[in-house]
Design a binder for these strands. Structure first.
Lengths: 263, 263
DNA sequence: TAAAGTTAGTTTATGCCGTAAGGAGTTGCA
DNA sequence: TGCAACTCCTTACGGCATAAACTAACTTTA
């Protein structure tokens, strides 16, 4: 399910994201043994290892030797915790891609890094884009993409669409690989086992496959679905290759836009 | 959370998808009052109206005047139900896009239709691609995309990547709009309310925004974030426009690939 | 026609989830 | 010394998927 941004007290949420609350050293009560940072890092570790579905307040608390309810002293709700995880994870992305080799090289390195980031943190792709988190690192990420692509000389309107299109592509390509990595753990079945069982059943259930889906059958016959490297699962290979090839297609399209109207 | 394909009895799952089990009229026991089709249609109605998060066996059962457990007579598990929903929804897509106007026109109409489909059924985007459902209508969809794009004359390898890239883009663009439509119901807040509150807080929490994010600020200053049509929520407008513009970019890129190496 | 077997649908129960409510113990300041 | 603020716990509630055992309806067999 898509996880929406926190709906609680928006002011507290933003304060947590932008860390505008200074640490008060002389407060009554026991010294806090945990911290927001620690909780967020632990939650990221859980989500990285076991996926968003396995991320529960209980699971995070357990890793910290606390109950689920202990976390609510630091974080208003799970939804806000996810926001904080999201923005904190984004801090991993570098912000100074080299532009001396031209925008095309810079976009390529940006896209690769972003793709790897999503694959490393698959759960990030499940945070809804409709109500952005609006954390500092999200803006850093957007700023970097815009900075690089402004080098094309595109006007504001076109620039916005180009960046959006790139994001859609990178996210989509990463998602396939990310899900492919989560699948064995989530289903308790390796890719090989799964494909073997399913393709056997498919010929059983659709013996007329080649007539019904001629182009698909042709593509399979051309060896397009043969894996080069047996150690890399099929879907992962597919995602990787499509990312590499698709990026070139997209960059060619952007170049056409730049040298063309350039609206 | 990403919903993975059913892990139950694969044979039964495929039989349900491909409808290879003939209806036995003379079976002992009470006549079934429901049917797989009815349950799947009801589940789709629930997911369309209230989102994947609100899709529960109880909710579907309730709409049919039954308990949640009644559904288990027809469907092995929720996971298989989602597979059936997915494949059934895909049947809506048309399979005969006109190629007489050239592949570019056909791809455009295919992409538009697919985009609208995803927006109409946002939950479809939450069904994992890593372990494909392998239902008949999924193959029909793939076949149609391949059929259209084979018209470019691309070889098998390149064709596969082009189709994948297109899918990533269409899905990404649709997702933004789909989530934007779900957001008000999910958060109990209209887009206007939300953006108003958040942008006020943003200037509060980051008064130095323009210095920290100069390109982002420039883009906003250029009016790139002004909505043309006040009745369409901001994120939806963004998604629509990016889809339209991005499709042209992508098609230009594909054309470059076609007229170039064409590997 | 009666008994036996199969099936549709129910109730009940188990173990997860987020989180509200309230209480116990700790600490700083008046 | 007492109070207020604070961390963290236990308990509880309503939701989820689904296992297990049951009732009732229906066909087949004796």
């Amino acid at each position: 399910m898509v996880v929406f941004a926190g709906q609680g007290d928006a002011r507290r949420s933003m304060a947590l994201l932008w860390r505008t609350t200074g640490s008060d050293d002389t407060r009554p009560g026991p010294k806090p043994a945990l911290s927001v940072d620690l909780i967020v890092d632990t939650a990221i570790a859980v989500a990285d290892a076991e996926g968003m579905a396995a991320l529960s307040m209980r699971a995070v608390g357990e890793r910290l030797g606390r109950t689920a309810m202990a976390l609510y002293t630091y974080v208003p709700s799970k939804s806000e915790l996810v926001d904080l995880m999201y923005d904190r994870a984004l801090a991993e992305l570098s912000t100074r891609h080299d532009l001396t080799g031209g925008w095309r090289a810079a976009v390529t390195s940006w896209a690769r890094e972003t793709w790897e980031f999503y694959v490393r943190h698959p759960w990030v792709l499940q945070v809804s884009q409709a109500r952005p988190v609006l954390g500092p690192n999200e803006y850093v990420m957007i700023e970097e993409a815009l900075r690089i692509l402004r080098e094309t000389g595109l006007k504001a309107g076109a620039l916005r669409y180009v960046v959006g299109t790139l994001f859609y592509f990178v996210r989509g390509a990463a998602q396939t690989v990310a899900e492919s990595r989560q699948a064995p753990a989530a289903t308790g079945m390796s890719d090989e086992e799964w494909w073997y069982a399913r393709s056997a059943l498919l010929t059983e259930v659709a013996p007329d496959f080649a007539e019904r889906f001629p182009t698909t059958a042709w593509l399979a016959g051309e060896g397009a679905y043969e894996s080069q490297d047996e150690t890399v699962p099929y879907m992962e290979q597919e995602g990787r290759d499509t990312f590499a090839a698709g990026l070139v297609i997209l960059l060619d399209g952007i170049e056409a836009t730049v040298s063309g109207a350039g609206v």
